[in-house]
């Protein structure tokens, strides 16, 4: 079985240092559980993805591509040549636009089946079984035939630890340069430091004054909640209060829902 892990030059979300995106590290772990995998990176240099060698890959193919060019043509050409059974990618890049469109563009270009948000892969070259995250631990188990491109979800198993010695031994091979290419469409008009916006609070009035929204926020939940306090209630009363509260939050189904 031929496995290719797509690697991108990520940036650490806090320090901004060049790193391998975490989801790609998780993809390497999934790939390692299935067999030998090769990394594929298109970009100006392979320094940031070199880290992948310490995480379980032994070989990375690097397509030299000037900054700002669309990597999809170069990647799809190389993937067509490699004809892998399984291509793994992170669901989003890290440190760039983080739009996660490249895997879809590759799947479209190569007419590959794309299964998104995968947390585990098992099986062999014939039929692969992919566990797809539906959030909160729920899964969709998808069996597929033929070559497939899967994007990896953060709920997949945590990446293996980086081993400096392995990274030292692994190889980055230059597999040709795409001198010409298409520019990535640059439609961004403005970029400025991120400003954190308050999350909407469920159950708060959509309009309303700031004071009312604040009240709704602090009355309903949030870390600064000034909660209700019952001192030494009757255990039965406490139980009723708890169940009522849990239902109000919505984590507990109502009593009428059962047995219908």
């Amino acid at each position: 079985m031929t496995i290719v892990v797509l690697l991108s030059a990520g940036r650490h979300p806090v320090s901004g240092a060049p790193v391998l995106p975490r989801m790609e590290a998780q993809a390497i772990r999934i790939a390692a559980s299935l067999g030998e995998a090769v990394g594929l990176h298109a970009g100006p240099d392979a320094e940031a993805v070199r880290e992948a060698l310490g995480l379980g890959l032994t070989r990375i193919e690097h397509i030299a591509l000037p900054e700002g060019l669309d990597p999809v043509p170069a990647l799809s050409a190389r993937l067509a040549a490699l004809a892998p059974d399984l291509v793994l990618a992170g669901r989003r890049s890290q440190g760039g636009a983080e739009s996660g469109v490249v895997p879809y563009a590759l799947a479209e270009a190569l007419d590959l089946l794309l299964i998104p948000d995968v947390v585990a892969v098992s099986g062999g070259a014939d039929t692969l079984t992919l566990d797809q995250s539906l959030g909160r631990g729920a899964l969709r188990r998808v069996s597929v035939r033929g070559p497939v491109l899967a994007t990896v979800h953060p709920d997949a198993a945590a990446p293996h630890a980086y081993a400096f010695g392995k990274a030292r031994r692994g190889a980055v091979e230059l597999v040709g340069a795409a001198a010409t290419g298409v520019d990535v469409p640059q439609a961004i008009v403005e970029e400025r430091p991120y400003r954190r916006r308050p999350k909407l609070v469920k159950g708060a009035p959509t309009g309303g004054s700031a004071a009312e929204r604040l009240k709704a926020a602090t009355g309903e939940g949030g870390s600064a909640a000034k909660g209700r306090l019952l001192v030494e209630p009757d255990p039965e009363e406490a139980a009723r209060e708890i169940l009522a509260h849990l239902r109000q939050i919505g984590v507990l189904a109502g009593p009428t829902k059962s047995n219908s």
């Binding site: 650490h12 806090v14 320090s15 240092a17 790193v19 310490g54 995480l55 379980g56 945590a158 990446p159 293996h160 630890a161 980086y162 081993a163 400096f164 010695g165 392995k166």
Partner: peptide, 30 residues
């Protein structure tokens, strides 16, 4: 174990990775 095999204990992987990538074991801004 760490350098050649990447066999850190599971819970230590996060802090050591953050330390390597961001200079702080908690991944907090310096």
């Amino acid at each position: 174990q760490t350098l050649e095999r990447g066999a850190l204990p599971e819970k230590a992987v996060g802090p050591v990775t953050e330390l390597r990538q961001s200079g702080d074991p908690g991944g907090r801004p310096l």
